[in-house]
Design a protein around this nucleic acid. Structure first.
Lengths: 365, 365
DNA sequence: TTGTATGCGTTATCAT
DNA sequence: ATGATAACGCATACAA
């Protein structure tokens, strides 16, 4: 019933080798026989066994897309989802398949998952522990890191311009909107993306010579949970120096409207409210908006609110949110194209590509 | 450098066969040698070549997750995304991998994509053309259909209780909120999910003996674009009869806030506004809310708005949206478990599982 | 231009 | 309990 290459070959009266060549459209086979083989293959809807092809050619045509994420959302995530979509598009254009992997443990190096010498390359999004990167290298699997800043040679990096985007946003708040008491509410700074956004926040203050907003309700020792100071070597890769002054941001344990709402309530309840809030994700900002509305304050007149990411909700929330629009589409596309380049030319040098973003001013500032 | 099974075997001083058995923890091998082989394998971080295993065992451990979607979002979609997440969870729990496929053409049967006898089973979400289902059957690939209502034997179906959910929502609007002029704004009815929601809307009116809301601005011939009447046989599978009366819903070309906004503007501009709107997706409802706010009408006092799906934005929009919460998580989980059951027992009968949903009343009604 | 023979890295069968 | 050896389905180096 199910036809193999040898069946097609017999039906066409040729050998397996010739049939194989004919189906691969090799110039080594006479046009006439080529057409005959192809016609027979088509009439039986023959499809080669991709797995057998893979073991023979040592090329599976499969790319792995991996994220470290303890809980949902995994790919139903405002960043991972759109990146996945463009990864799929670009991979499809080049006839590659995408297999997904999630790991809840930072110890994991994904070799239990799907590595097993069966993927041609991998993309790691948003978090990449050193030992995982090492393991991929050891197995000779080309790797591209997205929005993860670590000190690693021979890998390509695709990064949103977190620092630049946050700087532009801060310029908007300080120079265009004249805000001077700007609070920052952020997810953990151990993640390089948030760290860079935070550093932009600090640097903007310094350059404009205005003091960092401090709130007695925010106790640094409570709130910096688990934050390790940025490593100078890693920052240097990005052309940055460790911040020479530190504020006390409100550091959340995760990114969610509910956490943002509670954080903002705390700031409002302290009786020393800011005149602007930089929430380092739109998701947090949505909760911040809620808290301010519930306190019957006006946005942006009393408190301006800005987010980061430009997720769907940023357009439909009330008021629509000023934010930094991250080019997730381009990030996914570049990740695949860099990966394919590395697969084609395994010895190509490590490259870092910083993807520009765009400040989107809406009605919340 | 890269170790194969034979290398491990030699190092352990045994044959390939014994090594293979030892690593598979076969009872056929002496405990002592088993431990020796396993220890050596571990020390060299040996990982078997999954592709070679797959050709030998005729089992790849890969499941395909396919959607027909012309444009983005693909998996960054309010339904596909969360379903994908729970598919990944459930597949991972059973040591299966997921490879994704999108097709922009209804003609496509996915055999060009990844079928090629290399997946153990497939899940088709939200749309399943007959010939694609036939092709999967022809190739002997177990298939599960999610939220797609077609007449097909030997396949498992997982369906949100679209009809029941929409009925509950209509009961809420009519009985609890006393609304009598209820407009419906929906994506194309050629999709069974929307069709079932629409039928619930019609049936609720009939049973309560209240007339369907009609608006002169809505011209049926313009708006039913491409809608084919429901096929009785397919509906019968679901225990339903074709509607014995028809309204003129506002039928959109897609699901988006912007389309919803424009549709609602049209209704408002007609001078004959409804007192409630059933938007068959939350995404549409978000746009409806905007249009009503822009017209300075009160929600829900002047016009109540209800959606369907319970996407993230439903909680954070203003006012928070009354909607039907679809159990996407359970849908994805069931899809995988049904598929695995079918893989294990290829001759098991076709099953239809309807996943309950939940009416969530918020402040928009 | 075509065919033969070998290799890819496993698992499975059949001896021993 | 272990080892040869044959599948698995394809690609390809080498011969012809």
């Amino acid at each position: 019933m199910k036809k193999r290459l040898i069946d097609i070959a017999r039906l066409a009266g040729v050998s397996k080798a010739t049939a194989s060549r004919a189906l691969a459209d090799s110039p080594l086979v006479r046009e006439e026989t080529k057409l005959r083989v192809q016609e027979i293959a088509r009439s039986f809807r023959y499809q080669p066994n991709a797995l057998a092809q893979a073991v023979a050619t040592k090329r599976s045509g499969i790319l792995g897309l991996c994220i470290y994420q303890k809980n949902r959302p995994y790919f139903a995530h405002t960043f991972f989802g759109p990146v996945l979509d463009s990864v799929l598009e670009e991979a499809g254009r080049n006839n590659y398949h995408i297999v997904l992997a999630i790991s809840s443990s930072e110890e994991d190096t994904f070799d239990e998952h799907f590595i097993k010498d069966s993927i041609d390359g991998a993309i790691l999004i948003s978090f990449a522990p050193q030992h995982a990167v090492t393991e991929f290298a050891r197995r000779g699997i080309p790797l591209v890191l997205v929005n993860a800043l670590i000190d690693s040679p021979n890998n390509a990096f695709i990064l949103d311009d977190n620092y630049g985007g946050a700087r532009a946003l801060m310029e908007h708040l300080i120079a265009e909107r004249g805000r001077r008491r700007i609070a920052i509410i952020t997810d953990r700074l151990s993640h390089s993306s948030y760290l860079l956004r935070y550093m932009a926040y600090m640097d903007a203050h310094r350059e404009h010579g205005i003091p960092i907003y401090e709130n007695p309700a925010v106790r640094a020792d409570d709130l910096w949970h688990g934050y390790a100071p940025p490593e100078a070597e890693v920052l240097a890769l990005y052309g940055l120096k460790p911040p020479d002054m530190l504020g006390t941001p409100v550091v959340l344990r995760s990114t969610s409207p509910e956490e943002g709402r509670q954080a903002m309530r705390m700031l409002l309840g302290s009786g020393d409210a800011p005149d602007a809030v930089f929430a380092t994700t739109d998701s947090i900002a949505v909760g911040v908006l809620q808290a301010i509305r519930e306190a019957n304050l006006r946005i942006p007149e009393d408190i301006a609110v800005a987010g980061y990411d430009d997720i769907e909700a940023a357009k439909s929330c009330v008021p629509p949110l000023t934010t930094v629009s991250v080019n997730r589409c381009e990030i996914g596309r570049l990740a695949v194209s860099e990966l394919l380049a590395q697969i084609a030319q395994p010895s190509s040098p490590s490259r870092m590509r910083i993807v520009p973003n765009r400040l989107v001013v809406r009605e919340s500032t």
